[in-house]
Structure formats: C-alpha cells, structure tokens
Amino acid sequence: MSTSEILFWFLSVLALFSAIMVLVSKNPIHSVLWLIVVFFAISGHYLLLNAQFLAIVNIIVYAGAIMVLFLFVIMLMNLNKETEPSRNIWMKFSGVISGGLLLWIFVSATRSAGEIVGKTAMIKEGSIGLIENLGKVLFTQYALPFEISSVLFLSAMVGAVVIGKKQ
C-alpha cells in the first residue's frame, strides 16, 4: 500500500466519521465544528487529486467564511430544547422518503461511474486540477450555467436583504 492510498483511506474514514458526528451531535455548535473537520478532509482529497485550487477555495470559503456565518446564526438563534418545535409524523415520513431517494440516486450514480470513466477524454499527465484548465472549461463549455448561477446568487442576496430588513 502506498502513502497516497493510506492517506486516502485515512481522510475517507475521517470524513465519514465527522459527517456522522455532525448528524449525531446534540449541540449545534459541535455539529458545526465537526462539519469543519469534514471540509478539511475533503480538501485533503482534493489535494490527493492534484486539485490544489479547489482545496484552497474549499478551506477559505467553506471552512472559513460559511462556517463562521453558521456559528453566528446558531449563536444568535439561541437554540434551546424548550424553544424547539416538535415534528409531526408527516415531516419525519417525508424526511425518510427523501433520504431513501437520495440513497437510490447515489447507488445508481456509483453503478454508472464505470461507464463514465471509460468515456472521458484523455488529458495529458500533470495538467489536471490547474487553474488555467478550470478557467478555460468554466468560461467556454459552462459559460451559460455559470452566468445563471451568478444571477441566482444575486437574487438570493437581494432576497436575504429584503427578508432581514426591519419594517
């Protein structure tokens, strides 16, 4: 077993354990801290895939900015057991159905992954994960989805300002 394989399995176990701890933790602040560990493990996977840009962006944006925002929101909401509403049976049922459908999608995606790997274009060694290649693909092949997502983010920010504005 090579060093990269050992590192891969260590990061995978760490990511899965931390993700389970996000769900199991009773304290929301502990859940956020476990989620930060998940993001660092995923960044380690990006580094193993030679995608340094994605690893750094994942750490800066998600583990940094988004998690600080989550911590502020959790602390401002003052979540107590007394204020937590009880969930009815239909909400639990719809959650189980949604989770089952997501599991079904993951299983079908992993089954068809072998077909996709055989159809990918040959890329020269060492050029995977470079920022130049990411920029070329993003602004040529995926220019329209990139612009649509930017408009979606802009409308979400305007909506957040409108909702958060005092009367």
Rank of each mutant, 00 (worst) to 15 (best):
M1K: 01
F8I: 05
W9L: 03
V13P: 05
L14M: 14
A15W: 08
L16V: 15
L16Q: 13
L16T: 15
A19K: 09
M21R: 15
V22R: 10
V22W: 11
L23Y: 13
N27D: 12
I29P: 04
S31L: 06
S31Q: 12
W34K: 08
I42L: 15
H45E: 07
N50M: 08
N50H: 12
Q52H: 11
F53D: 14
A55Y: 07
N58V: 03
A65V: 14
I66Q: 04
I66K: 09
M67P: 02
I74E: 08
I74D: 05
N78Q: 14
N78D: 13
N80S: 10
K81G: 00
K81I: 00
E84L: 08
W90T: 07
M91H: 07
K92E: 11
F93V: 15
I97Y: 11
S98N: 13
S98K: 12
G100K: 07
G100Q: 07
L102C: 14
L102V: 14
L102A: 15
L103K: 08
L103D: 11
L103T: 15
S108E: 08
A109R: 04
A109W: 03
R111Y: 08
R111C: 08
S112D: 10
A113E: 04
A113H: 01
E115Y: 06
I116V: 11
K119F: 01
T120V: 10
M122A: 04
E125P: 06
G126P: 00
G129L: 09
L130R: 14
E132I: 06
N133A: 10
L134G: 12
G135Y: 07
G135F: 08
Q141W: 04
Y142M: 09
L144N: 01
L144G: 00
P145I: 05
I148S: 03
I148L: 11
L152T: 06
L154P: 01
L154G: 07
M157Q: 03
M157D: 01
G159V: 02
V161G: 01
K166G: 06
K166D: 04
Q167I: 01
